[in-house]
């Protein structure tokens, strides 16, 4: 259904959950498109074919690298994570949340805007939430036009905001839109795995792809590591484990041995900036999670 091993995009963009300082240092290395090319080709060599991708401003450089490299162009699948939430947060600070939504919608194509205007227009965002939401997703996905997409992920801030506000129907709008318009696999990212599993079950939604932190250290696992482990037993859950090395606190050996106990784990994000680390991760993953080979 989706790639079993995905390359994480955070190191390329200077995101390091452990240390902003270290993240910035790695990002500097990837200012150079050649470094990105080497990492991607190295991972391709290891059998990795998919990569998480936010709409970070630097993502266009990664897209160019993929487009210009025949090996990657042929079968490298992108897994967009939308929206690029930091941009929204900074812009909301700058001009207010509603203006951010308005300005985003203004980037939609004329045909899409026309369809939306006929249904009420941007002044009536609240009256037609599903349409506004679909249009926002379309705008976010514009940079990925024409690329093979593995799955489309909703950012955890939006998934969790919808859960918290009790407006899960919004998640269903996202799920249906991704399936119908993009013929892609919809996926939800969350920092609250047990809560999401419970709500999805309540709404009768199963067989979904969910990405969440899952590691032997309990790092970023809310409300507790135990509750997340229990939630991993939810029938029909396809879990994509991220933060598997707990930002470097765990060695691959202990990290992937732990993950090997959970049949719900269908995929693992390997977030590294070095081919040799990816190679080590892939070897150990194949040993402990043979179903992902």
């Amino acid at each position: 259904m989706i790639d079993h091993i995905l390359l994480g995009h955070n190191p390329l963009f200077g995101v390091n959950h452990l240390s902003a300082e270290r993240g910035a240092a790695v990002a500097e290395r990837f200012e150079d498109a050649q470094a990105i090319r080497q990492l991607l080709l190295g991972c391709h060599e290891l059998g990795i074919r998919g990569m998480m991708m936010s709409t970070h401003p630097r993502s266009s450089v990664v897209a160019e690298v993929i487009g210009s490299e025949p090996k990657l162009r042929a079968d490298w699948r992108l897994y967009p994570l939308v929206p690029y939430i930091q941009k929204y947060v900074r812009e909301a600070n700058e001009k207010g949340l509603l203006n951010v939504v308005r300005d985003q919608l203004a980037q939609a194509t004329w045909a899409e805007k026309l369809a939306f205007a006929l249904r009420g227009g941007v002044g009536l965002i609240g009256k037609d939430v599903p349409q506004a939401l679909k249009l926002l997703v379309d705008v976010e996905l514009m940079p990925f036009k024409g690329r093979p997409l593995g799955a489309i992920f909703l950012h955890d801030t939006l998934t969790d905001l919808a859960l918290g506000l009790g407006v899960e129907a919004v998640l269903e709008v996202f799920i249906e839109h991704v399936r119908e318009k993009y013929r892609a696999v919809p996926a939800l990212t969350t920092k609250n795995l047990p809560l999401l599993c419970e709500r999805l079950k309540r709404r009768g939604l199963s067989d979904l792809v969910v990405m969440a932190s899952f590691n032997a250290a309990g790092f970023y696992m809310n409300p507790s590591a135990e509750a997340c482990v229990a939630a991993a037993g939810t029938p029909g859950l396809n879990l994509l484990a991220m933060n598997t090395l707990a930002s470097g606190a765990l060695k691959p050996e202990e990290a992937y041995r732990f993950l090997g106990q959970f049949p719900a784990i269908k995929s693992v994000v390997v977030g590294t900036s070095r081919v040799e680390h990816a190679a080590e991760a892939v070897t150990v993953i194949r040993r402990y999670l043979p179903s992902l080979s």
């Binding site: 452990l18 240390s19 609250n192 309990g218 809310n222 409300p223 507790s224 590591a225």
Partner: peptide, 17 residues
């Protein structure tokens, strides 16, 4: 003390703990 040493889970995490 790094983020992994300092992390404490929360009942629900929306945005940041």
């Amino acid at each position: 003390l790094k983020a992994t040493d300092l992390f404490r889970p929360v009942p629900v995490d929306i945005g940041n703990p």
